[in-house]
Amino acid sequence: MNKQGKIAALFLLPYLLIFTIFRFGPSMAGLFVGFMEWNIVGDAAFAGLDNFEKLFRDPMFYTSLKNTMLFLLMVLPPLVVFSLLLAVLLNQKLRYRNAVRTVSIIPYVLIPAVVGIIWNWLYDNNFGILNYYLKMIGIAPIEWLTNDKYALFSVAIVTVWSYMGYNMILYLAGLQDISKDLYEASTIDGANKFQTFMKITLPLLKPITSMIITLTLINAIQIFDQIFVMTNGGPGTATLTLVQYLYGTAFQNYNLGYGSTLGIAIVVILIVLVQIQSRLFKLDN
């Protein structure tokens, strides 16, 4: 290793140490615990594949998996499409553009628990502002969070609201990276605005779109805070997601072994989804 390499390694060393002690080590331990029966206090007993067998016949796992996938389908398209449209809009020379950009990012900056509390007020069936306006225009109030048909969708709206600003900033950075020469050339060639968007903007934003989809996949599969604050997994199990189920299993029922098995399952699901996504979005240089 040359001198420059040694210096680089020295800079990396503190992070690698922290990563190994606080991330990699516990993760490997988590994988190991997934094959054990353990309630934290007693001695862990090797359970072989029992936890995985239980996973495949656990109806609550399938309920939480179904809810998580539905949630992903609810948030992914709007978080890509609306963020892109917002970024394109805010990339134009508009009055108050900077103020609107700043306001758009505020929901992302708020702590998810605070977001959950705010939306709980807005969604209140009887005295919430949303139903107040619905009643004003003669529409029957909606049981946003307390009806099992709407609850997951209502949480999805909040997630889209929270993350759209962040995705918009990523798209905005991508848009500002596209050379103006390309747009000028297309104008000279007679392309209209829609054609320019479809043939220049969209293809050149492909890496950003790929990154946004990956981040949304991870965030959606790991959804926890907002559900915990807004519905606690209810009504019934209508908003019970994989991580919420993991939390209950590991930290309420103290079944660390099965909780870790659920964690492994979530990681496997994420790896599969990210793999599919990266194949679909195979980037060429």
């Binding site: 991330r23 993760s27 991580v243 964690g263 790896i271």
Partner: peptide, 18 residues
């Protein structure tokens, strides 16, 4: 493997920090 490990840790720390 490293990514998987990081993901598991993230899940557990996200839950446990509540």
């Amino acid at each position: 493997v490293l990514a998987s490990a990081a993901l598991i840790t993230t899940l557990f720390t996200a839950c446990a920090s509540n």
